[in-house]
């Protein structure tokens, strides 16, 4: 049974991967059609995975709460609140429609503001961590500090006025060293992905069936 659980997913990945490769690297129309059809399936799979994710997250939080009811109260909150929000959103959507003023009020005044607040709170951690870590303690750290400061100053209109040349310097940081490093990283990642793809198609990649 365990062998089947390992081998069947590998076999499915190999077959579908082969179709995708044939669709990309041949001009035979049938493979092109199969590739287009398989690609459109991913939209459905994505939609299902959102639900699956919600179910898994809820179940995991419920289990964590059950394990430690005294200290795991936050897991109970994580378990209940999504259902409450889902109920509110779904309810207002069903009752009034998602185009309705009621739904828009909920979206603009509650959802949007809570989301923005969560992101805004990150400012505090980012600001204090920059204070602690943006220290020129080594050559690497100095390069990071210099690049970060120049790019930050370039983004701020006040310094564009106060420091002549900061715009050019900031763009140079972004479009020269950043692009060089970025392209190197992208090419390295692409080669890695290619190797992973070949291993997967050959059934050699254990992580697809056994977890990373």
């Amino acid at each position: 049974m365990a062998t089947l659980r390992r081998e069947i997913p590998k076999f499915i990945v190999m077959i579908f991967g082969l179709f995708m490769l044939l669709g990309s690297f041949t001009t035979i129309p049938i493979f092109d059609t199969i590739k287009a059809e398989l690609t459109s399936w991913t939209v459905t799979i994505s939609a299902v995975s959102v639900w699956l994710g919600a179910v898994y997250a809820s179940y995991a939080n419920y289990r964590l709460y059950q394990r430690n009811k005294k200290e795991g109260i936050e897991h109970l909150i994580y378990f209940i609140v999504p259902f409450v929000v889902f109920g509110l959103q779904f309810g207002s959507g069903i009752l009034y429609g998602v185009e309705s003023p009621q739904y828009r009020w909920y979206f603009t005044n509650i959802y949007q503001n809570i989301g923005a607040t969560v992101y805004a709170v990150m400012f505090f951690t980012l600001a204090s961590s920059a204070y602690r870590t943006f220290i020129a303690s080594s050559w690497d750290a100095t390069a990071l500090l210099a690049g970060g400061i120049i790019y930050t100053l370039r983004q701020i209109p006040l310094f564009q006025v106060m420091i002549p040349g900061i715009v050019g310097a900031g763009e140079w940081v972004m479009l020269v060293p950043n692009v060089g490093g970025g392209r190197g990283a992208v090419i390295a990642a692409a080669l890695g992905a290619l190797a992973l793809g070949v291993r997967t198609l050959m059934g050699q990649e254990a992580t697809i069936t056994e977890g990373g």
């Binding site: 920059a130 943006f134 220290i135 020129a136 400061i149 983004q155 701020i156």
Partner: peptide, 24 residues
């Protein structure tokens, strides 16, 4: 928003300078 960013970032830059001065 640009005005706010311009002025609001100043304390952070000052604190980064303080951190480096203290380190050296």
């Amino acid at each position: 928003m640009s005005d706010s960013k311009s002025i609001g970032i100043l304390p952070q830059l000052v604190f980064i300078a303080f951190g480096n001065i203290a380190y050296f």
